[in-house]
Nucleic acid binder design. Structure first.
Lengths: 139, 139
DNA sequence: TGAACACTTGAGCATTCATTCATATGATAT
DNA sequence: ATATCATATGAATGAATGCTCAAGTGTTCA
């Protein structure tokens, strides 16, 4: 067995077949890091709100600050991140800078997340009822 | 104008029409928070790798620890988060606990992210070339 | 030229969070 | 019972990160 990985693992491996099969198909580390970084950008409520707003209309920094009730500085900092992540682009007009979403992907990622998020909410009540007696692992 | 929002905004609002139109359509704060929280879970490379692995096969904690070359404890902590977020479920078998993805949404969210992430990479070279002279805002 | 405004940016601060370490739980086997 | 193994978990630590504050850039307008 190749021991170049799994060094930190403080237990015996049980299912080598599965593990090696999965490892073979594993995307490059860099790919998954990139993916995580993308989601990280979506993982903040300020940025989510900015993105949502921009999915509705082009807006300048001031507009966003007012809409979200935050300082213009805070918004600007976040827009910087969003731009680095290539999720938004901007256009200058006089003193103002207008931001829009960079492409349709953003909306699509959004939508997928929303679907999951809402389905979860719907099931919330049912779940609450069963929670105590019916955990997959008894607590 | 209703001043109950936009208090922190330290600048005059320029585009009231747009802002109010967007505000009217704005989802409930709670909805967007929930969405951000969902993406937050995806926004970590360890969790992404766990999710990816589980999208390929059911695995126990040890398997994951070995596959990802991390301590069993670290994996376990992350699995706890993933379970709380309802992204994975588990099944006990003797001493072992096997984890799988909870539903197909996870894969779909994944895929959308991957599409964006990879498209970005493809454009990387082009972008690099133009970067210096052709920014939407001159730096 | 200089005042006003939209925006950006760097430093500082407080909070969040991922991992580690030590320990606990719970199952199996001897 | 006791030892062992898989897993879980609480506390601690160091790193990452969001916001604020103060200062800077660049544009318009007088």
């Amino acid at each position: 067995m190749n021991n170049s990985e799994g060094i930190k693992c403080d237990c015996q491996v049980i299912h080598e077949e599965v593990v090696f099969k999965v490892r073979k198909k594993m995307p490059k580390e860099e790919s998954l890091n990139q993916l995580a970084d993308l989601f990280k950008v979506f993982g903040d409520s300020t940025r989510i709100r900015i993105l949502w707003a921009l999915s509705e209309a082009e807006m300048c920094v001031c507009d966003l600050a007012f809409l979200l009730n935050m300082t213009q500085s805070a918004i600007s900092h976040q827009l910087r991140l969003l731009k680095q992540a290539r999720l938004v682009k901007n256009r200058k007009e006089g003193k103002m800078v207008f931001y829009t979403l960079k492409d349709a992907h953003v909306k699509r990622i959004f939508k997928q997340g929303m679907i999951h998020s809402e389905e979860k909410k719907e099931k919330e009540q049912d779940y609450e009822k069963r929670e105590k007696r019916n955990n997959s692992i008894k607590t």
